[in-house]
Amino acid sequence: MIEPFSRKPTNAREWQLRARVLQKQLEGLSIEELLRGARIEDAPKVGDSDRSYDPNQPRVPAGHPDGGQWTIKGGHNAGSRDPTIRSDVTPSNEWQVGARYASGRGPRVGPLTPATQAQLFRLGAARTEALNAIRRVQEIEPNWKPQPSAYQTVEGMIRAYQAEAQQASQRYVELTYLTGPGRFAAEWIPAPPPGQRLTSADQRRIDQLGAIHGCHICGTFNPGTRRGHFVGDHQIPTALGRPWRIFPQCLHCSNVQGGKVRALMNKKGR
């Protein structure tokens, strides 16, 4: 039996053996884990005590979206079927762009087709955007997850990430604009009876609160209106129930909320 990683393969058979071992190590990993180079929970975190520089620490191979980045050191599970990359592979650049690295257990429904460098770049960008958008939602709703998409090509994978980012953005807007006061909400005034406008005294108070706390959604101190008044935002939105509080809001957030309310009304069947 040839030890596949003890030295650089010298013939086709040794290369094939090495590839099979690698494939077994990568089997069952999700795309997230593949891209990261390890299981998410095993990824090093800021402040880890063993984050010091180690020249022998393996890197993600070239051709991989995270190619060149440090990955988890080889260790206690190396070579096992545990779905964790704990590779003790000698860092090398022999991996090819578009090579088939693993059969996935994630949403992918078949082997990935070869990817170009441009696709890998776009894939990385789409993934980053999706992760950031999901993280932003999870700050408000920790258990929220986007619906997974199926894909068979690299382009499909990019679109899947873009779809996740879009879902997350939509959810963030819903959470921010339609489900109560925003993250900068502080003081408020009582809402007038339904159908009644704010009095000028109410408006002065809203402007004062806006000057102190900013827009309750985005925190800006610039109301964005022609006459410099903050919008008095009814919470909850009148379309969703009877509001009882009014917070200062900037014109832009008011417009965005209006679009969301309109979409919601249409969805409800008007």
């Binding site: 964005g224 014109l251 832009h252 417009n255 209006g258 309109r262 009304m265 249409n266």
Partner: peptide, 10 residues
Amino acid sequence: GGVAPECSPP
């Protein structure tokens, strides 16, 4: 009613 647009950016 149509499909409401996203009212952003300003």
